[in-house]
Simulated assay, not measured.
Amino acid sequence: MSTPAGTDPASLLRERPLLLNIAYRLLGSLTEAEDAVQEAYARWYALTPARRAAIDSPGAWLTTVAGRVCLDLLGSARVRRERYVGEWVPEPLPDRAEWIGGAVGGGASAVPDDPADRVTLDESVSMAFLVVLESMTPAERVAFVLHDVYRYPFPEVAGIVGRTPAACRQLASSGRRRVRAAHAPAVPVAGQAGLVRHFKEAWEAGDIKAVVGLLDPDATMVSDGGGLVGTVLRPVVGSRRIAEYLVFIAAKAPGLTLLERTVNGRPGLVAQHSGVTVTVAAFDLSGDRVGRIWAVRNPEKLQAWAALDTPGTPGAPAPTTDPAGI
């Protein structure tokens, strides 16, 4: 008996990059996104051969199931995050070419040039955008991402969210208003890179005045340690306070190396100690200054960066000391 079109393992695997992209935007966590996609595939293979053969579009079926899994996870995530130690920040991603080609993004079989594979290339995956998505209700987030980012028609979105197409239209519209309210004029990537480089140099030099000059007066820095490593538990607000805190931390962490890296498609910084990534910082610019900084230190959220670390084998464990409570 021949295999129905689109149901062979190779065809099904080609759906994975798109599913992973959608799930990451919905959940803000690559680890949870991979779990959601894996669950969708598990449910597909749990179907009887007759039921699989009756499905006209396996890709659409997988998207629907993955979307529903993500919707359920978003509901439970709200409860978990109420118990989270300190601030919760979406999981940062390294450069697209690096993580897609590594252990995290699907291995060597992933196709970097696939149009569907754009997790770190556009506005919808920037840290600022993901933070806005966190402010949405689960249904609002799913409807907005599927329709506004991926252009799924509302009848299809309705089948995933479990609402009417008209209700999904309203949900997406509400999400759109949230994004517009938080939107700042885009700064060219070259300008972003230059500003982040100057920020790095001022920080390394311990020049508080220079760091202050690169920050918006009302800048905010949020750190996420997840209770697993030391970090400030509340947002640090104000250019002077942020600069003094960063310089103080740098003085406490001899041997800390700052590297310019792409974080969620934008220029960012990575702090390494003994070649192991201990902090990933994403930036949001306000005009020609830094408006927001998100510093992720939770080691569970840095797994995508572990394969890029230099010492030993990929995924080398972080040092037992905590060199920088950034």
Rank of each mutant, 00 (worst) to 15 (best):
K200D: 05
R180I: 10
S2D: 11
R180H: 07
T313L: 07
L93H: 11
I293C: 04
P4Q: 09
A193K: 06
A251S: 13
G101D: 09
D56F: 12
E82L: 12
S223L: 06
W44A: 11
K209R: 02
I22E: 13
L27Q: 11
E156T: 14
Q303V: 13
R297Y: 12
G106D: 06
R163T: 15
L47D: 07
Y84S: 00
V119G: 03
D117L: 15
T3E: 00
V179D: 00
I249R: 12
L26D: 07
A77L: 07
L256K: 06
S124K: 09
P188V: 11
Y245W: 02
S124H: 15
T31A: 08
Q303K: 07
A42Y: 12
A50H: 02
L26T: 05
I293L: 08
D207F: 04
R81Y: 08
V119F: 01
A324T: 01
E260Q: 06
F283C: 03
T320C: 01
V85S: 10
C70M: 09
A193H: 13
S223Y: 00
P314R: 11
E201V: 02
I55K: 05
A23P: 07
I22R: 01
I55Q: 10
R80P: 03
R25S: 00
F199S: 05
A60W: 01
R180T: 00
P299D: 03
A316D: 07
A202Q: 08
V263H: 03
H273W: 12
A40W: 09
M136D: 12
L215G: 14
A190N: 13
P49N: 10
D309N: 14
L20Q: 14
R52Y: 09
Q192S: 07
T64I: 09
G105E: 00
F199M: 01
R80A: 13
V196I: 08
R151V: 09
V211L: 03
R163V: 08
